[in-house]
């Protein structure tokens, strides 16, 4: 594996708030073109790990490399350049409430490129269509959208600049099964055509079955095991066995 193909490299990460340690000596590597899911029980620090990657919180110790550059000690300029290369789908969408869906999607384009307003509008409308939203949703405000449409609008904004790295926080949570599986297909398609690297934080067992190449299981403040779904299901670590060996999981994974 050559160094340039490593998109994210987390080494000996320690994070915590107010004296409680959330991650202790966490290691994780993600290579280009890969879809990695992060799973784990409630409170295992999935969202904290994501926030750490997004540079929203500072780690206590350890090193995070992104696109081959150290972001934990990088200059403000370096961090800013990293921020232009990813797209993020927040759990609750985090659309700007005073802007329409179209304006939300256009915002990254207007901030980062010098395209004309018409071109921006066309590209944004294309992204909205790619995210699976009807064209009529473009002029709506986030408050007028359903939960599933908010997710799709947020995805449209996340892919507005064709990012190399897409971070999705619970993309299918709160969606009906049809929308959820359509979203899964969309994620796979985007990866294929746009050569994306994707990190998904999810609880959705069906998503785990179809989307990721590898799954990282968080527990005991670190990555307990990383591997394919099959490897995790047949893992001999008790915590992972509990996660994948219950009535719901057994129904979903009965063929594995």
């Amino acid at each position: 594996m050559s160094n340039t193909d490593t998109i994210i490299d987390i080494k000996h990460l320690h994070t915590g708030f107010d004296g409680t340690l959330i991650h202790q000596d966490l290691n994780l590597t993600v290579t280009r073109g890969e879809i990695v899911a992060i799973v784990g029980g409630s409170g295992s620090g999935k969202t904290t790990l994501l926030n750490c990657l997004l540079m929203l919180i500072e780690p206590l110790k350890g090193k995070i490399d992104m696109f081959g550059k150290n972001i934990t000690q990088g200059s403000a300029q370096l961090r800013q350049s990293i921020r232009k290369r990813w797209g993020i789908l927040f759990q609750s969408g985090a659309l700007f409430s005073e802007l329409t869906v179209l304006q939300n999607t256009m915002l990254p384009l207007q901030l980062e490129t010098r395209m004309s307003l018409t071109d921006c509008t066309h590209i944004a409308q294309l992204k909205i269509a790619m995210a699976g939203l009807p064209a009529s949703a473009a002029n709506k405000y986030p408050a007028e959208l359903s939960g599933g449409m908010i997710k799709r609008a947020a995805l449209a904004r996340a892919i507005a600049l064709d990012p190399q790295l897409l971070l999705l926080d619970e993309p299918s949570a709160g969606l009906d099964p049809i929308s959820a599986s359509a979203l899964d297909q969309l994620i796979l398609e985007l990866r294929q055509t746009m050569n994306l690297t994707i990190i998904i934080v999810t609880h959705d067992l069906d998503t785990l079955l179809t989307v990721p190449d590898r799954i990282a299981f968080l527990g005991d403040k670190r990555v307990l095991q990383i591997g394919t779904l099959k490897e995790l299901i047949h893992s001999d670590i008790p915590m992972i066995q509990d996660y994948f060996n219950n009535a719901r999981a057994n129904r979903t994974f009965k063929d594995m």
């Binding site: 329409t100 179209l102 509008t121 066309h122 409308q125 294309l126 909205i128 269509a129 790619m130 064209a135 009529s136 473009a138 002029n139 398609e189 294929q192 055509t193 746009m194 050569n195």
Partner: peptide, 21 residues
């Protein structure tokens, strides 16, 4: 080949023109 897939994806989602409000 690589670019053709992306082009097809974009073509399939060719934007429907909705006038800006």
């Amino acid at each position: 080949l690589q670019h053709q897939a992306l082009f097809d994806l974009v073509k399939r989602h060719q934007e429907v023109k909705v006038p800006l409000k």
